[in-house]
Design a protein around this nucleic acid. Sequence first.
DNA 1: AACGATTTGTTCGTATGTATC
DNA 2: TGATACATACGAACAAATCGT
Lengths: 280, 280
Amino acid sequence: MTEPLYQSIAEDLEAQIRSGQLPPGSQLRTEQALQDKYEASRNTVRDAVKRLIARGLVETRPGQGTFVLEEIVPYVTTLSTDPVKGSSEGAVYQGETEVEPTKSRPRVEIQQADPDVALALGLGQGGEVVSRHQERYVGETPWSLQTSFYPLALVTEGAQRLIQPKDIQQGTVDYLKETLGLAQAGYRDTITVRAPKASESSFFGVPADGRVAILEAFRTAFDQHGKPLRVTITVYPADRTRFEINAGEVPPGAPGVATGQAGKISDTGQGTGRAPARGG
Amino acid sequence: MTEPLYQSIAEDLEAQIRSGQLPPGSQLRTEQALQDKYEASRNTVRDAVKRLIARGLVETRPGQGTFVLEEIVPYVTTLSTDPVKGSSEGAVYQGETEVEPTKSRPRVEIQQADPDVALALGLGQGGEVVSRHQERYVGETPWSLQTSFYPLALVTEGAQRLIQPKDIQQGTVDYLKETLGLAQAGYRDTITVRAPKASESSFFGVPADGRVAILEAFRTAFDQHGKPLRVTITVYPADRTRFEINAGEVPPGAPGVATGQAGKISDTGQGTGRAPARGG
DNA sequence: AACGATTTGTTCGTATGTATC
DNA sequence: TGATACATACGAACAAATCGT
């Protein structure tokens, strides 16, 4: 018996969930009942349940019990779309998602750029930037937090609307093209996974202890002269997000990955696992 | 005191780490000493340390103590590069990384495609595929696991080398072009984050309980007729991986994101956080 | 090689607080 | 209001790993 008891309990419960014996939405036995079944103490049972929580399989609701989570069907976010064939425009636009998100009114601030942003924008340390921050929802559920940073110089050069706290119609890409003649000729996305910050976990409604990861997309956009035009940082909760990137010619309706690939995961080969789930 | 004790202890310790007061590699006080300092019981102190572990800030070594982890500098993986200007080729190639990885000899199998793969390749359920699996290292450290799936039909049509267990020089993209005239005209990547499977956590040497997430890139490649040619699934440990995607014209040497952006993270605005770290 | 001291890992028991029904 | 169920916190015991003597 080299395996800790709490671990084998967790594995037994996980097997029941994966096999469908405990379907999504169903309630686990109470801690008391689990103690009886496995002949373990309350703390040991709780340790086992903690593992299931960490794996995104169940959630505990005080006063009610422990429940198997629904599998989340992630929103697909298209990060990069090649220009449509025959587009003569030199500019590259960012497509993001088929489902139109609801955006909050932008919160606009003028700040000293933090080191990452300053570096990406080619500013000196402490260079000033306009920051435009938006919360974005799909329906009722929080979907992403986005902050764009523009060099303050763009405003003084004539793009005054950047510092107005209202949504700029047609997006800032077109606006900068019209006012300053700066096209977005390309961009670079850097994608990382990290633990949520306090503000992020409260907005997304995910636990603060890193059980649900955050996907961060750090986009540096360049103008036609290769000069950094903007930095946009967008963060998503990893459990309900799926990035999609197309390159070259891709059939439009081509299936990417299965939307519902639940259960029955063998670990012999390599395939898509069950997406970490989370429910509310 | 609305905040739990174990949480405030964790925050205090985390602040010390982020501020550099507890530098990477240094040892935390023993549980006994922490009990004295915070006037809490051993279990409460241990709960606090567990939070730090979940955040990837420290690791515990039985018999020795608790240590602050080194910050990991992630390998950058370029997922998608637009064709270089003036490239007349219609085919799109996949660039991956500047550091050349070491690949294991491929393990080749003929399998029934699992549902995801079958769907992406446009095969019926249980359609047969050639699977080519490789482990990839950067230096000594495990970097990624990759499995490519090809419809078995390609082999019967003349691409016999697909089922030979040796590395195909110049890659399978060129090989299929030469033998069957099938060019890779484009591809679609789908990126998801999930908990590691048992085989993955043992290969990467990460804990099995989901503290370190797995980045999965599911690539469906299409030929010039828009027909799925191949599915490639690559998985990376999220804590040492950074994806980079370029679109349009991007200056080659342009800084993406800071390579060392440690410490001193305020949560007032939105910026890049410390990457989840892990050490050995 | 053996032993003891130190440190973390696991498990138990118990008490109290808080949310839900 | 009371019962139920999870959250937090404390104390205690033994096991296992590590290190120095």
